Simulated assay, not measured.
Amino acid sequence: MACFKRTTVILLCLFTLGGCANQRPASHAELTTQEDILLKSKNYSGLISLYRGWLKNKEDSAVRLKLSQYYYQIGDYSSSLLYLQPLATSADPNVPLLQAKNMIAMGDQAQAIRVTDRMLQHDPRSAEAWNLRGIAMALSGKLPESVQAIQKSRDLFIADEVAINNLAMVALLDRRYQDAVSLLLPQYLRGQRQPRLVHNLVLALVKVGDTRYARDIIQSEGLSGYPDEVVDALEQIGPLQKGMA
Rank of each mutant, 00 (worst) to 15 (best):
L55M: 04
N165P: 05
Q111C: 09
I74E: 04
E30H: 12
M137W: 09
S90F: 01
R114I: 12
S80N: 07
T116C: 06
T211F: 06
M119I: 08
S126D: 06
A149W: 03
G134W: 01
Q111R: 13
S27E: 10
L185K: 10
M119T: 06
T32D: 12
S78I: 12
E30A: 11
A138L: 02
S140C: 02
K66Y: 08
Q236Y: 08
D155E: 12
S41L: 15
G191I: 07
I217Y: 02
A163D: 01
Y188C: 02
P195R: 06
Q109K: 09
M119K: 02
D36C: 15
A171I: 04
K5E: 13
S90N: 06
S182V: 08
E35F: 11
S78T: 15
V95W: 01
Q99S: 14
L185T: 10
T7H: 07
L240M: 12
I135V: 04
Y226W: 11
R24K: 15
Q85G: 12
L39P: 11
R52M: 14
L223Y: 05
V63H: 05
N94H: 09
Q194M: 14
Y188H: 01
L173G: 00
N200S: 06
R6F: 11
S140Y: 07
T16R: 12
L234H: 01
N166T: 04
R24D: 10
L234S: 04
L84Y: 05
E145T: 06
R24V: 14
V63L: 00
P124K: 07
I158N: 06
Y72S: 05
L172C: 06
K207F: 04
L14N: 03
A105H: 02
A180Q: 03
P227R: 06
A159M: 07
A159S: 06
L14S: 03
Y44N: 12
A105P: 07
S146C: 03
V198Q: 00
S41V: 15
P124N: 08
R196F: 10
I10T: 14
N200I: 01
Q194Y: 14
S45R: 11
N43A: 12
K101M: 07
R24W: 10
L183G: 01
E229L: 13
D160R: 15
W130M: 05
S224L: 11
T16I: 12
L120Q: 04
V181R: 05
R212K: 11
N200W: 00
I237S: 05
E235M: 13
D76I: 07
N200C: 02
V231M: 04
Y213C: 14
A214Y: 11
P227A: 07
A21R: 13
L184Y: 00
P86C: 00
K42A: 15
C3T: 15
L98R: 04
D108N: 10
G243P: 01
V170H: 01
I237H: 10
E128P: 09
K5N: 13
I104A: 00
K142R: 13
L39Y: 08
D117R: 15
T33D: 12
P124T: 14
L98H: 07
E161I: 15
Y72A: 02
R212I: 13
E59L: 09
T116G: 09
L240S: 08
S153W: 02
D117N: 10
L87V: 08
P144Y: 07
R215P: 10
A214R: 10
I113P: 00
A138G: 08
N131F: 05
A233H: 12
L81G: 08
D123W: 10
I74Q: 02
D160T: 14
L184N: 01
T32V: 13
L84I: 08
